[in-house]
């Protein structure tokens, strides 16, 4: 059986600038800016497309293989 590895977005709170670019381009509404301070990517919604990573100007988003 072929095992498919799922990717998902992981957002660093330390360098995140809350510009909202990720929220704007997320096709599933998984990336959300929380109270103007940081962002979270809902793992249950994230499809690992990487659009948020591509637009993030702070480099705060990385795509990691989901457990």
């Amino acid at each position: 059986m072929v095992k498919v590895k799922r990717r998902r977005a992981v957002i660093s709170r330390d360098i995140y600038v809350a510009c909202g670019s990720c929220e704007d381009v997320c096709p599933k509404g998984a990336a959300r800016v929380i109270r103007g301070s940081y962002a979270e990517a809902d793992a249950s919604l994230c499809i690992g497309c990487g659009r948020c990573e591509m637009v993030c100007p702070a480099g705060a988003i990385t795509m990691e293989v989901a457990e």
């Binding site: 600038v17 103007g36 301070s37 591509m54 993030c56």
Partner: peptide
Amino acid sequence: LYKPRSWCAVCPMGTMTQMICKLRNKE
């Protein structure tokens, strides 16, 4: 030279408002 909204990573207004939000929401 870089990503479209690279300015946002250094924007003084963005920095100030993020500081305010963090303080206001007791981060």
